[in-house]
Structures are given as structure tokens and as C-alpha cells.
Design a protein around this nucleic acid. Structure first.
Lengths: 325, 325
DNA sequence: TTGTAAGCGTTATCAA
DNA sequence: TTGATAACGCTTACAA
């Protein structure tokens, strides 16, 4: 049915190995034969079967990217960065969601992978990684001889942000965190806490709200504090989605931002920029690009598995005001 | 090196076909053997090789999705819809960008695909499609016995929108289109033109600006008309990104929206909703879900290749005012 | 209930 | 410069 290497060989009146040699640009083929085979491949619309190829040779210039949070629209930027670097270096990109990821990691179809989904388990990665299959993980540190971490420095910009917040006189905070097992949230919260401790400002755990990085959980957080009337002076959110949820809830109750309540986020998503949210900008395209570069260098024989730290910077917006003492 | 079916067989002291039978849930295996093999697979961390599998059986519950515009953040919603339907029906999802798409379409690794990227050529699709490999294309009509189109009805909501615009008294328009070869833009513009013709309102081609669906091109469009001072009463944009670009340019020049100039978009992206853009809402999650359903039904023996039309609805926002005569 | 062996589409080795 | 032929990891008759 489908056109394979044998059909081409038959049509050209040569053996399949000759066709294979032509296809792989080997020198041991006569010029006329080469021309003929080339022409036939085009005419007969031959496309090499990736399965057969990978099975035998183990070679495939392909990297795998894994994600599965569809709410985080900046993921497309990361993918773009990966896609661009891969393309520039003549690698293909294959993307999968966590469910099918392991299957493609261990199938001679890809040569390495970049993992973003936090739900991908460390032990699965540890088993898959090897010198023949390097891995890059984003947003988590995973000590393993063949796994490289590419992480964002959350701590410094959060420190800078919170210092400014306290300098402006804010004293009553709600911290809206993401899933508590994520390194991101832990680091962002740690920076917050450390600044307060450093300045001798108290923070009670009842003003910590544990969300899930989605807009709705920010909305709920704000709703809860609105309902008790126990509003903070500022909501410090571990990401933009939740900050936007907070803002929506506040607006519904005619709270003015930042006059009545201030809000900050983290991520600098497209929408955040537009509404003037004070947040932290993470260079996502660059992050993807760098992850792809690290991975491909290791695929091609490099052996650099030291973590890479990416810098992020505070983006000052209008949702943070000045509190007059 | 890697653990394969033979290693399991050796460890269990059985033949590889027995292992295969266990793995594929066939009945012809003794209970103890089955238990043993199962246990060994877990212990030895065996993951079936997708290449070997697909190569022999041709079966693989996997669908392919293709895209490559990283600026359109609602793509994630489409992917989510596809992912969910596939998951519910025990199919895997593999995603690729156009460059590598053909390779995976024709490799016994996937059973069908959903195409979104407009750059994917019709003839490539026509060659790949067959009763054994059904295809769904989004946003284009492609007559072929094994390709199903899932398209948005752009015409009706655009008609409704433009009727309202003319009813409110607007007479001087700029239409900012996307790439002119895209069906979307053609249909959206046709609706616009038809309403005007119907109402005897003139429209000169010099007020048509051909953009590329990116924010920047909307920005440029507005800049051009701002620079000549020949501002329209309203910018009607073929998508939200460009509308947002228009709005940015107008704001830079202190134009009030909608008092001085009105703006409308198309897509209802997240940001549009937030800034109150008058636009058309396209149910993207549902679109992906439906595309996946159509595809999988055809993979499993259905033969319904009639186009599916998805309805979209105008979302009225604050960027459209009332023009008093 | 289990094993043998052929074959899926390729690459690679070695002989012609 | 070419062509047989043996893998790659798996499924699947068919034989035992």
C-alpha cells in the first residue's frame, strides 16, 4: 500500500541497500543511479518511515518536549524558543503531554527531552535519563548525572519586590501561593518570608492562601478575605493568573486598586502587561531556547549537567501604590 | 542496554511471544505466568518501544496535532480540547510543528491527524490522507474523500456585527485583514462587504489593510492612518491581536475609544475580554474536542467526512460606541 | 498453555 | 559500485 524503500528499489531496478545509501547521502553510489533514485522518490512521493528508521539506527535528530498545563499561555513562548533552536540546528521537535511522554522518551524516536510538567515524576525521569538520553528539566532542581536543570531565579526578584512593598509602607499581606510542592512557589514564598523576617515584620500563617496557579483560585482567595471583611493592604500572588483572579474579585466589590488594596503577580503574562500589573518578568522564549541548546549540546556529546539559572526582573505596574503612614 | 521484551522473557524463563501476549492482554496465557511477567515488567522497568510496536502492528492509539503559530495563545485551548477527548477515549496525543509533521503522518506511529497550521500544504495532506489515515483540517475547506473540515462560521457573526455597526451610524471604516489567502480572513471580509453592499454603503479598497494576524500589523495599520490624519470612524479587525495593536497605536495618540475611534476584533482572546473589546467569541476548547471526536470516529471505522461548522457569537464590549448623526 | 518463526521498514555489514 | 542478509523490538499466525 504505502510506498517504502522496496517499492522505490523495484521501480529503479536496484536493491534496497542502494536506495538507502542514496537517501543517506553515502558516497558509494553511481551518479546515474543516484539521480534515478532521487527522481523516483519524488515522483512516487516517498517519505521515510520514522519507526523503521529509529528502530534500526537509533539515530534521529529529534527532541521531545513535555507539558500539560493548558492555562499557562506563556508556554507557547517556551515552545517557540525550543522550536527555534531545534530548527536552527536541524533537529525536529515532538511535543507530548505527560501521559504519553514516557513512551516517546524510551523508543528510539527521540534523543533527549525537555520536561516542563510538574506532574512528571522525578523517578520516571531518573530511570529514563542516561548518557545516551540526556534530559533537561525546567523549574525544578533534580540532582542526577544526566539531567540538567534550567530554573528561574525567583528569589532575587521576589526579594526586590517585597522590599519595595515594605518600603512603601505596606504591613498587612495576604500571600497567595501555588501548589505547595512546586519549587517555584516555595522559592517565591521563602523570599517573601525572609524579607519580612529581616525587617522584623510579622506574618501569620492564616494569611497564606494555597492556590493552584489558576485564575479561579486567586478569585476564591480574594472572595474569602472579602467575605470576612478582613482585607489585607496587599495581595502578593505567586503568579499572574491568580493575581488576575484576585483583581476580578476585588473589582466586583468596587475595591479600588491600588488605593484600597494593592496586588502583585509573577510571570508577566500578556494580560498582566496590559492591565498594568506589578509582576516579575520571566524571559520565556529565551528559557526555551536555552533549554533546547543545553539539551542538544549534551546529545551531541557534551556533558554539562550543571544547573542553569535564568534571571527575571520586576516589572513595575500600576497595581502597587504608596501607602501613606 | 535498554530493557526489551526479550530481557523480560529471559528473566521469566518464557518466550517472547508469551510476554507479548501478556502485555496485550490475550487470554492464552496461564495465570501464574501472567502474574510473573507482569511483576517482572514492573520490577525491571519495562516500557514497550513504540517504534517496534507501530512497525509491526500498524496499530497505535495515537493522533497527531499540527500547529506552528506561537502567537495565538488560544491554540492551547484547542490543544486542551483535543487532549481531553483523546484521553477520554484512551488515545495518545502527539503534537508537532509543520516541519516534522509529514514524517509522523506517514510512519505507523499515528492513526490520523488534526491540522491547524495554515502553512501545511493541501497537496501534502491530500497525499497523506486515506481510509487508513483520516485527517481533520481546521479553518479550511478541503474537498477530499478522507479529509474532514472543521471550520468556524465566520460569516454570520461578522454579518451581525457589521449590521449593528452600520445601525449605530458608522460609515467610515478601515478593515484590517489577516493574510489574504486564509479562508478566515476572506470570509470575515466577505461578510463585511456584503452588509455594506446590501445597505448601499460605499467602501473603497484603499481602506483595506492587509495584515498578518499579529499585533504589530494592527499597530502599523493604525499608525499609517494616524500619520495621514485620515482616520476612520471605526477599525474593523479580522482578529483580536491586530485589534489590540490598533488600540495601542490609538492610545499613544490620545485617541479615545470609542468616542474618537471605535475598534472591533475577532477571536475573543483572553486579553480582549479583559479590555472590553467588542469581538466574536469562538469556542476553542470545544473546537478541539470536536475535531478530535470527528477524527477518532473516522479512525475507528466511521466514514463521515462532511464539513462541520462551528458557531461563534458576537461578544459586545466597550470599544464600540454609538455614533450620533 | 507455550514456543517458533516470519515480517513490519529501515540501516549496516560484508561479500560480490 | 552494488546486492544479500542480518539485525532493531515488536506482533502474530501457526506449530507443538
Amino acid at each position: 500500500m504505502a510506498i517504502g524503500i522496496r517499492e522505490i528499489a523495484a521501480a529503479a531496478g536496484v536493491s534496497i541497500s542502494t536506495v538507502s545509501n542514496v537517501l543517506n547521502g553515502r558516497a558509494n553510489v553511481g551518479e546515474e543511479t543516484r539521480q534515478l533514485v532521487r527522481r523516483l522518490c519524488v515522483e512516487m512521493d516517498y517519505i521515510p518511515n520514522a519507526a523503521g528508521k529509529g528502530l534500526k539506527s537509533g539515530k534521529n535528530r529529534t527532541i521531545l518536549f513535555n507539558f500539560s498545563d493548558f492555562d499557562r499561555s506563556f508556554y507557547l513562548k517556551i515552545i517557540e524558543g525550543i522550536h527555534d533552536y531545534a530548527g536552527e540546528n536541524d533537529y525536529d521537535l515532538m511535543i507530548c503531554t505527560t501521559k504519553s511522554c514516557e513512551k516517546y522518551m524510551r523508543s528510539s524516536l527521540t534523543s533527549g527531552c525537555i520536561i516542563l510538567d510538574e506532574r512528571m515524576k522525578n523517578d520516571v525521569l531518573a530511570r529514563a535519563a542516561g548518557i545516551q538520553y540526556p534530559i533537561v528539566v525546567l523549574d525544578r532542581i533534580l540532582p542526577h548525572s544526566c539531567i540538567k536543570s534550567v530554573v528561574v531565579n525567583n528569589y532575587d526578584p521576589m526579594t526586590q519586590l517585597v522590599r519595595e512593598i515594605t518600603a512603601r509602607g505596606y504591613r498587612k499581606f495576604v500571600f497567595v501561593g501555588g501548589p505547595s510542592h512546586t519549587g517555584d512557589t516555595q522559592e517565591r514564598f521563602a523570599a517573601f518570608q525572609d524579607v519580612l523576617k529581616d525587617q522584623g515584620i510579622p506574618f501569620s500563617r492564616e494569611y497564606y492562601f494555597s492556590g493552584d496557579y489558576r485564575e479561579k483560585s486567586g478569585y476564591q482567595a480574594a472572595r474569602i478575605f472579602l467575605s470576612t471583611g478582613d482585607l489585607p493592604e496587599i495581595f502578593i500572588c505567586a503568579n499572574d493568573n491568580m493575581a488576575i483572579g484576585v483583581i476580578k474579585a476585588l473589582r466586583e466589590e468596587q475595591c479600588r486598586i491600588p488605593e484600597d488594596v494593592a496586588v502583585t503577580g509573577f510571570d508577566n503574562c500578556e494580560l498582566a502587561e496590559n492591565i498594568g500589573l506589578t509582576t516579575v518578568h520571566i524571559p520565556n522564549y529565551e528559557r526555551g531556547y536555552l533549554a533546547a541548546r543545553s539539551l542538544i549540546e549534551n546529545i551531541e556529546g557534551g556533558a554539562n549537567f550543571d544547573p542553569v539559572i535564568i534571571n527575571a526582573a520586576v516589572s513595575w505596574g500600576s497595581t502597587l501604590g504608596k501607602k501613606n503612614p
